[in-house]
Design a protein around this nucleic acid. Structure first.
Lengths: 229, 229
DNA sequence: ATAAATTTAGACACTATTGTCTAATTCGTC
DNA sequence: GACGAATTAGACAATAGTGTCTAAATTTAT
């Protein structure tokens, strides 16, 4: 976090570094203490910056809070779309590939710092800032879910899956992948790699029991119809 | 004795009525404003009670908060166990019965006032009161999930379902039933009956595609083996 | 009816926090 | 090294909230 290598002087940081440092600290503190519980001095201390600097940058507490949420929303969305682009369109091993995808999604978008913070802030302050969080809803789930649904639709069309409603399937995929992490999320914890893998594995297996073809699509297309039980 | 006919005076309420009224108002306010954002005057006003009365009953803000969480936990647990007792052990129409069960669970335990409040308080303040919420975890999910799992295990044993791990299946059942309510929950909203029914219907269908037998158990047992595709 | 317990409004001391201001310092850049 | 911009510590007024205390009013039980 803080590299104090110099013996007596504090290492100077640029304007931008301070800006970033304020965003980091504010995210942390708002998340930990809630908007009302957070105070500017705490954020300033955690950012290693004077209180006045925060007021110079952001005007007041509420503007700072809004900036944090916008920033987190953007970063999370970027991460989610980056992860969606790794969706297995031509899976070699459908189960393994979907499990790996679910794990990536969880690790890089849901359980990471930004994901955790954004989730917490939405849950905690969502009702107090309807317009801000309506914005999140549009930019977030409103765009990511259809994107995931489109990938599942493609997979189904290619014969790997048997899906009627890709939107429903996408939501259920995510719900199943997280099914065993709910309690941990509730309490603000971060599940370890093993829990994430477990939940993803169980979730994907169930998902494939519901929506999988009996055989891999490539095989199925070669051998035409064997239709086993 | 108990005739409130007085025309111009505010109807007096008993000690116990005030106690309940404080609990109600405090739940509401803590939930809406978070612990730090809530203040005693607000609660007193909402409860129609003087501030001092709250201090008389509960000592201080933190003790009041703890009392609220304990109360909500208890009430929610009671509701969940009551609902679990309506689990369809001898289903006539497995899909319809499970959907109805999922709807009851959502309506009476997750989406109702107590469920919503408890969820919000756990999410918001969980990290600040580890021991209190550890208690919730034990009393809540720690006892309800196994109870639900046991019902699914029985259903599987009776030949209605094909389940390896009932604990996993139970968690996934709940996750699927709520899959389409996540965003609404996030923002603190209350889904209407139609959304609840939709989500439950889709969730249970997927659940049965994954874990259902091809035929109703009764039939399957009579006709022994037909094993259709 | 009367006594005991509870509730009430309001004042109160105390603390915490926000947001502003200033004067000195440090930084980035030429 | 010199200049303007950014940052700093600290004081500051203004506000809001907690928890206590009082004396009067009201409720409950005897």
């Amino acid at each position: 976090m803080k590299h104090d290598v110099s013996p007596d002087t504090i290492p100077p940081r640029s304007h931008e570094a301070k800006r970033a440092s304020i965003m980091d600290a504010a995210g942390e503190v708002f998340c930990r203490e809630s908007f009302a519980g957070a105070n500017i001095d705490m954020i300033a201390a955690e950012a290693g910056v004077s209180r006045q600097t925060i007021y110079n940058h952001h005007g007041d507490k509420e503007k700072l809070f809004v900036a944090i949420v916008r920033d987190l929303t953007e970063r999370c969305n970027a991460g989610i779309f980056a992860t969606i682009s790794t969706f297995p369109d031509q899976p070699k091993d459908l189960e393994a590939d979907l499990i790996a995808f679910a794990v990536r999604m969880n690790r890089n978008c849901i359980c990471n710092r930004d994901g955790k913070f954004l989730r917490k802030l939405i849950q905690t302050e969502g009702e107090r800032y309807p317009e801000l969080f309506a914005e999140w809803r549009e930019q977030g789930p409103g765009r990511t879910w259809p994107a995931i649904a489109a990938r599942f639709a493609r997979l189904a069309h290619a014969g790997f899956l048997d899906i009627e409603d890709p939107d429903v399937a996408a939501r259920q995929f995510l719900a199943l992948a997280n099914a065993e992490l709910q309690t941990t999320f509730m309490l603000g914890g971060t599940p370890d790699d093993d829990e994430v893998l477990q939940s993803a594995t169980h979730g994907v297996r169930t998902f494939l029991r519901a929506f999988g073809k009996r055989q891999p699509a490539a095989e199925a297309q070669k051998h035409s119809a064997l239709a086993g039980a």
